[in-house]
Amino acid sequence: MKSVIDLKNVGYSYQNKEEVLNGLSISIPEGKKIALLGANGAGKSTLMLLLNGVLKPNEGQLFYKGEPYNYKRKGLRALRQKVGVLFQEPDSQIIAPTVYEEVAFGLSNLDFDKETVRKKTDAVLECFYLTDIQYKNPHHLSVGQKKRVCFASVLAMAPDVIVADEPTSGLDHPYAQQMFKEFDFLNAQGKTIIISTHDMNHAYEWADYVIVLHKGKVWQCGSADEVFANEAALKEAGLPQPLLLQLAKYLGLKEMPRDVESFKQLIH
């Protein structure tokens, strides 16, 4: 499996000396839908910031397609164009006074001329159905709309890897579903999607590859079937098994269903 980002013995601690990540080594497969799981304080958000180069590891190294991360200004710009981050709290991402300018913000920081930025922004706004609200103040939108605006702003930069920190937190079911549809659409275009989530059920249904973090280390990683089958390891990391797996086990099913439809077929 070809990897897009490799982490080798990465350690990170914040200013209070508390070690968040400790000797973390992992390869992130290219073009996959990846779920990053872990209890609170496991180091998920820190890892995501390391992937985008916002944080620099205290120990170890990160590699993008085999090339070590370059933390100089030019190198970081190039990296951040390739690895986009969607933050959990949309309010901490929004900076511009209108939706249009917010979406155009990332693009205007790159070396595009204004007309190209406008063209790309218009295309992304249309793609995300944000044209109607393009002149609105993003702070006055609903949480769902704010998240869409932030997502559009990250995608406008056309990154190859999209890192999303709990993208569906605070979203109602239809908005969450829509968000995952968009992730699927992007993944079908060859982009690598990494999401951190606490929703084990959705992670099981959606992800191709799962990484479980526990106490700043990779506790488990592999295909969703492999990782979620190991109930004991999940329990130790403070995570429950997905509901479908628990039900399938209880009913003594031989095959493990990945979604509700396949579960229904298996029990009939």
Partner: peptide, 9 residues
């Protein structure tokens, strides 16, 4: 942090 993540220069 969010500004940095979007190539703020």
């Amino acid at each position: 942090i969010a500004l940095d993540a979007r190539c703020y220069n």
